[in-house]
């Protein structure tokens, strides 16, 4: 382990995970406040919807970085991983709520969108995959489910991939930003393929 990793691990022993839950409320609260007072630009609903969705994808990617970071650098952030996962779910729930209540508003159209629009179907699919993960992100579930808990939580892999595709598809034309996110996601998934994951573990 490098000295940098040792220093970081020394810090993280002292810093608990719970403040993350409090800090995480700030970005969506700020977005909502700005939306209400009218300082969120010319199209505040889209801004809120897209920004909170992007936060969700970013925190999800951060969650996915925890394991490879430990494997390749020795930096251990595992104690924050549950918080990151739950914050992702919170953000995506906010994203979905803005879409439902402020953007589309019309229930018949919402249902039609979910069924007929591939990017919305894909986004909803990712959200549904995350529900059992959020529900079982606690010590009691880990004890109850034992080995199945690890299996169940592999659902995050399809969920993040669907999230990245959802982002790519909702833009008009093929755009750079979602492609960058999708590339990062694919790299993080490839790092979990048995040949790569096992080789590095063996060497360490």
């Amino acid at each position: 382990m490098t000295p940098v990793a040792q220093t970081i691990n020394g810090w993280t022993r002292k810093v608990p995970a719970w403040p993350l839950y409090i800090l995480a409320v700030i970005p969506p609260a700020l977005l909502f406040y700005k939306g209400v007072v009218g300082t969120l630009g010319i199209d505040p609903v889209k801004e809120m919807e897209h920004q909170i969705g992007l936060y969700g994808l970013q925190v999800l990617i951060a969650t996915m970085c925890v394991t490879p970071l430990r494997r390749f650098t020795g930096i251990n952030l595992i104690k924050y991983r549950r918080a990151l996962g739950l914050i992702t779910f919170f953000y995506i729930t906010c994203h979905l709520s803005v879409w439902l209540f402020l953007d589309v508003q019309i229930w018949s159209q919402i249902w039609a969108d979910i069924v007929k629009r591939p990017y919305i179907t894909i986004g909803m699919g990712a959200f549904i995959l995350m529900i059992p993960l959020a529900v079982t992100s606690n010590n009691w579930s880990i004890r109850k489910l034992r080995k199945n808990w690890t299996k169940l939580h592999k659902l995050i892999y399809p969920a993040v991939l669907l999230g990245g595709i959802h982002f790519l598809l909702l833009r008009k034309g093929i755009q750079l930003e979602p492609l960058i996110y999708l590339t990062i996601i694919v790299v993080l998934l490839v790092l979990r393929l048995p040949p790569i994951a096992q080789r590095r573990t063996a060497r360490a």
Binding site: G35, V36, G38, L40, I42, D43, P44, V45, K46, M48, L102, D103, V104, Q105, I106, Q109, A112, D113, K116, R117, P118, Y119, I120, L169, L170
Partner: peptide, 22 residues
């Protein structure tokens, strides 16, 4: 006639604020 990725039946009116109806 919907766009393949979204409905064209309604529109968001720019300038209505966050609680504006479609």
């Amino acid at each position: 006639v919907d766009h393949p990725r979204w409905s064209q039946a309604t529109e968001r009116v720019i300038g209505g604020g966050i609680f504006a109806a479609r």
